[in-house]
Simulated scan of single mutants.
Amino acid sequence: MKPMLNVNAVSVRYPERAVIESLSFSLAPGQIGCLLGHSGCGKTTMLRAIAGFEVLDGGEIRIDGDVVAAAGQGLPPEARRIGMVFQDYALFPHLSVAGNVGFGLRHLPASACAERIDELLALVGLRRERERYPHELSGGQQQRVALARALAPKPRLMLLDEPFSNLDAELRERLGHEVRDILKAAGTTAILVTHDQHEAFAVADVVGVMVDGRIRQWASPYALYHQPVDRYVANFIGEGVLLPGVVNGQMQIEFELGVFEGAVPTHCEADGCRVDVLVRPDDVQHDDASPFKATVLARAFRGAEFLYTLALPSGQKILSLVPSHHNHSVGEAIGIRLELEHAIAFVRE
């Protein structure tokens, strides 16, 4: 299947530094991707390059097979058939919801325009609000109007630049799922830029973790969490700790919590090779019957769960996420066992 978006070895440089360096990824038709990283990693610059607001110093960008940008040249933004949703939504305050959604459809006959507006308002669940104005809407409703307006001209690609950053955490996650459902229902290929991994995981099929203008790993949210390619991704995604261990003669990894078959790092196949093993909070189960004890150092109540910080006999600290009916006090020794289905280890630095 031909990619809808193909970014091939793209570089963008400013006089003082390289912002994007030989970056590549692609999206299949209808797929939702995300560029995830801290401020300054280059993710917004990459989005602007796809949109046509940045000139490439190298590589090329194709949309639906058409070259829209190459080194030193590119189609203007309005010729790329791209929809965009920004942080501030940029709605027209003097236009109603219907007027905003139909703003990019004025070239159509009135009947076709009205039909498309009705279709989009139904898709985003705002038919009752069609005559209201932006200041009369909640932040979440404004965001859906902005999405409907961007979808109205049937763009080949949708770009979303930190679209939930002005909303509170609970609303961000809920709207992330809503936006994903809307984009999937429309069959629209999209790419999201965010620094929030919960947002990325709620919306995207595939996520690229960016640092210093490069993608460290381009994979599904599940793979990023359970199969990080390096320490940076392991530390950036989710929570967890790295515990010291060694590779034994049977190509197993031995560390304080047991002996495990696992992904022995490349170039670390000799007996006694020192490694660090990634242990996630959901790998550490509370088990009163277990002879292996750890001491509760701290706990954070999360409603359905507690996140415990535990001290192992060696003094190493681990995290454990357990149902909240397992209510233990700081200083208490509790039984734990490890359910490590995805043993990931890195060569000790």
Score class of each variant (00 low, 15 high):
Leu123Arg: 12
Tyr133Val: 08
Leu159Ile: 00
Leu137Ser: 04
Gly140Trp: 04
Lys154Arg: 15
Glu136Ser: 15
Cys113His: 14
Arg130Val: 12
Ala146Asn: 08
Gly125Thr: 10
Gln142Glu: 10
Pro134Asp: 04
Gly140Phe: 05
Lys154Ser: 07
Leu123Ala: 08
Arg106Leu: 13
Arg127Leu: 13
Arg116His: 08
Leu159Cys: 01
Arg127Phe: 08
Ala152Asn: 08
Arg128Leu: 13
Arg132Thr: 06
Arg156Asn: 08
Leu159Ala: 00
Lys154Tyr: 05
Leu108Gln: 10
Leu120Met: 15
Leu157Gly: 01
Leu151Gly: 02
Ala122Ile: 13
Leu108Cys: 05
Glu129Cys: 13
Glu119Ile: 06
Ala146Trp: 12
Arg116Ser: 06
Arg106Gln: 14
Pro153Asp: 02
Pro155Tyr: 01
Ala150Glu: 00
Leu147Gln: 01
Met158Asn: 03
Pro134Gly: 01
Ala122Val: 12
Glu131Asp: 15
Glu115Met: 10
Arg128Ala: 15
Met158His: 05
Ser111Lys: 14
Lys154Gly: 03
Ala114Asn: 13
Val145Gly: 03
Leu123His: 11
Arg130Gly: 08
Arg149Ala: 00
Leu151Cys: 02
Arg128Tyr: 09
Val145Asp: 02
Ala122Pro: 11
Pro155Asp: 00
Arg128Gln: 15
Ala114Met: 09
Arg156Pro: 00
Gln143Phe: 02
Leu126Phe: 07
Gln141Asn: 06
Gly139Asp: 03
Gly139Gln: 02
Ala112Trp: 10
Val124Asn: 07
Arg116Ile: 06
Ala152His: 09
Leu157Cys: 00
Arg128Thr: 15
Pro153Met: 05
Ala114Lys: 14
Ile117Trp: 02
Leu108Thr: 04
Ile117Met: 02
Leu123Trp: 10
Leu126Ser: 10
Leu157Glu: 01
Cys113Phe: 06
Arg144Val: 03
Glu119Asp: 13
Arg132Val: 06
Ala150Lys: 01
Leu120Asp: 08
Tyr133Pro: 06
His135Cys: 12
Cys113Trp: 12
Ala148Pro: 06
Leu147Tyr: 06
Glu115Leu: 10
Lys154Gln: 13
Ala152Tyr: 10
Arg130Lys: 14
Pro153Cys: 05
Pro153Tyr: 05
Leu147Cys: 04
Pro134Arg: 07
Ile117Cys: 03
Pro155Asn: 01
Ala152Leu: 09
Arg106Lys: 15
Arg127Gly: 14
Arg106Trp: 11
Pro109Met: 13
Glu131Phe: 11
Gly125Asn: 08
Val124Met: 04
Arg144Asp: 07
Ala110Asp: 12
Arg116Gln: 12
Cys113Tyr: 04
Arg106Ile: 10
Ala146Arg: 08
Ser138Glu: 05
Gly139Val: 01
Ala110Ile: 10
Ala112Leu: 14
Glu129Val: 07
Pro155Ala: 00
His107Pro: 03
Ala114Arg: 15
Met158Phe: 06
Val124Ile: 07
Arg130Cys: 11
Gln143Asn: 03
